[in-house]
Design a protein around this nucleic acid. Structure first.
Lengths: 346, 346
DNA sequence: CTGAAAGCGCTAACAT
DNA sequence: ATGTTAGCGCTTTCAG
């Protein structure tokens, strides 16, 4: 037996197609009694609307806008590239993607960009917005206004907690930090010594979260391995190289290193230059050309990674579902942190 | 400007809709010259067919059958549960799913079930079959017959190489084995001793491949840790418990264990009962209630996991594409192997 | 408030 | 070998 259609509902409820449609789409102009009759018919038949057919008829085009930080680091450049790549494919799924970039770490500029979207000409106003959020009050406010205008907002990579954003898509950074500690602690089993943490800046939210998770687990499970205060390398290879070299020379008992930010090329050079023995075990973030080589050469032991393509795709899926007011699983959007060793490089 | 439609193509090529349709679907009854004219028009306009509309018009229902091993272990039970869950959702995507189960490790029974599908009443013959394959000649034969009858066949979780199956959906099991070795080798750094391998059956292709990858890396990178010949527990907790207990008692120098199959409850019990010191490091497969507890209690150190939901969804996507004769990316279907520690349990 | 009718992009009889 | 026409399930004018 085939799925019931609007026709069946109309017949059973003894109304016309248009009335069923009005009820289906919550439009008014239907007497309460009639509406109830239609609802009853739907329930009785187990009616479920065919979204494909609906979209076809309505000639629906999902208008989605991405607001990204200007290409400060290679991660963000990759992200922008990925969005552009998927913009092409998305056309086949009735999705039109636009992109704008704003200066990084500038809440004001970001908020202004979001407001611009809301105030655009009606046919240019997007149905949904994806934003790599800077954590600032103005941004929270702007997001709230977008939502007020019926625009769905997804935060990507970096969340905006306590805001009106519809969803967050990215990894769980606390969990990533915990994972790093679990690996590094086991890699250094039976060793005595210290663990060095290399971060970009403790002003970056995801870095803070990773460190938090890392120290939670280190403290609870591997108390003999005392993490040192973070070395802040500002995600810049040169600075990382200099500071890590100093640290390695000053403390020959460094048995493990957790690099939770960028600048991994510098870390790698520092390790090759100082070459302490036995070599420290190293866990870093994001699979790039640099970190891939470091893994292959046995300089890094593990790399934690977030799959950007997956994140963008996921953001689009969730956005379309939100726009269609289709139920979206709660946990959807939490991307797994992938773990790469030399042995499972893709 | 909107996407061009069949109407546009027809107009430009100066033919009727039906002719465009014939060319589009590779039906014959079109003169070569006409066909070329239509093709040219498509290229000129950049025409791309709207699959949703096509399916709507065609009233297509994808009939898909899953043949699964009877619930011997919790992984397979979860798999069956997941398939049932998605059977409900899939209805919305014009997909009708049926399921049958067969005794595990029984190539004959599996082959019989597959033949039954092909020989069913015409309207009950599925368009595609998804099967967790037992590696046996009869099964290869049955798969070949299904394909001969125009039925697409996808192997799930465990592949059937050198067979006529259309695709494989699952993890790269060689890579998973390598990953396990990379982890276990590092976890046992500085130790001397032996590594025990616990497998279900060397008749299962995925188990063979995992072992292969594991030994590759063990040999190349951690030669001081000699892997023992596999203990075959037939994925049954009791048998695993018995055999592992014996092994632990016979060889107190077991410093690491790689459990690449099912029956992890038994492994866990054996470890608790014999409780060798220092406790061996343990890497196992599949996150289940059992292995989750083992991780939390510090009995297991890492669990390699395949996301079943993702696999089932992926299998259905690919199957629909195959049935539609839509091109399917080659790498599609290779699911990432996830790594869980106590610290990043979902 | 409610309904009839004309599509959306594609396919499938049924002509010609 | 090609064209005409009537839908698929839903939405959207435009009339009652």
């Amino acid at each position: 037996m085939l799925r019931p259609t609007v026709h069946d509902v109309a017949r059973v409820a003894n109304v016309s197609l248009s009335t069923v449609d009005r009820v289906l789409n919550g439009r008014d102009g239907v007497r309460a009694a009639t509406r109830e009759r239609v609802r009853a018919a739907m329930r009785e038949l187990g009616y479920e609307r065919d979204i494909m057919a609906a979209n076809l008829s309505r000639k629906r085009v999902y208008k989605v806008h991405f607001t990204l930080p200007e290409g400060s680091n290679s991660f963000m450049r990759n992200l922008a590239e990925e969005v552009r790549a998927q913009a092409r494919e998305a056309a086949r799924d009735r999705t039109r993607i636009s992109i704008s970039t704003v200066p990084p770490f500038d809440g004001r500029a970001l908020a202004a960009d979001l407001r611009r979207l809301r105030d655009a000409a009606p046919e240019a106003v997007p149905d949904g917005v994806v934003v790599v959020a800077t954590d600032a009050a103005e941004v929270r406010q702007a997001v709230s206004e977008l939502r007020g205008a019926g625009i769905e907002v997804i935060t990507l990579v970096s969340d905006l907690p306590a805001s009106a954003r519809s969803r967050f898509v990215g990894i769980d950074n606390v969990s990533a930090g915990r994972t790093a500690a679990g690996l590094l602690g086991r890699f250094c089993r039976g060793q005595k010594g210290r663990i060095a943490i290399v971060a970009g800046s403790m002003l970056l939210r995801d870095h803070v979260e990773r460190r938090l998770g890392f120290e939670q687990v280190m403290h609870a499970e591997f108390a003999h391995l005392a993490p040192m205060p973070p070395i802040e390398g500002r995600d810049a290879a040169d600075e990382v190289e200099r500071r890590v070299s100093e640290a390695l020379e000053a403390r020959p008992d460094i048995t493990g290193i957790y690099s939770l930010g960028g600048g991994n090329g510098g870390l790698q050079r520092a390790l090759l230059r100082v070459s302490p023995t036995p070599r420290p075990m190293v866990v870093a973030h994001e699979l790039t050309e640099q970190s891939r080589h470091a893994l292959q050469d046995g300089v890094f032991d593990a790399v934690l990674h977030q799959d950007i393509g997956h994140e963008v795709r996921s953001a689009l899926d969730i956005l379309r579902a939100l726009i269609d007011a289709t139920p979206v699983e709660a946990g959807r959007g939490l991307i797994r942190t992938e773990i790469f060793l030399r042995d499972n490089l893709p």
